[in-house]
Amino acid sequence: MRLRWVRGRAAEGDGPDDPDRTREWVGCDDAGEAIARVVRVSGPVRAGWRLRYAVARDAEARVVELRPPVDRNRRWLIVIGGRVVGRAALPLQAVRGAEAALGGG
């Protein structure tokens, strides 16, 4: 299923070594409805009083801890319907993964 991908949420990191901590692309259908998202959140992230090293954001942008921790080489999460259905090394690979998971190319 081909989606129309638009920029999602983004959070800047702490400095030049960590320029874009959170990046997200949202896949919409023809009606503009968000169907899937691919997201990268690099840890550590401070959530309340806790420092979490392997995290993602759920549909309401709350930080959730992932178990097992994210594989550093597959940091992009493919999220469909609020569930992580796969991981990829790069955003375009994650996008293709999301479209494949939704069926068809």
Binding site: W5, V6, R7, R23, W25, L90, P91, L92, V95
Partner: peptide, 17 residues
Amino acid sequence: LLDTALSVDDAAMEEYF
């Protein structure tokens, strides 16, 4: 190459989409 290179530039990703 596209997967890797475009990942550093959101505007390029949009052009690709």
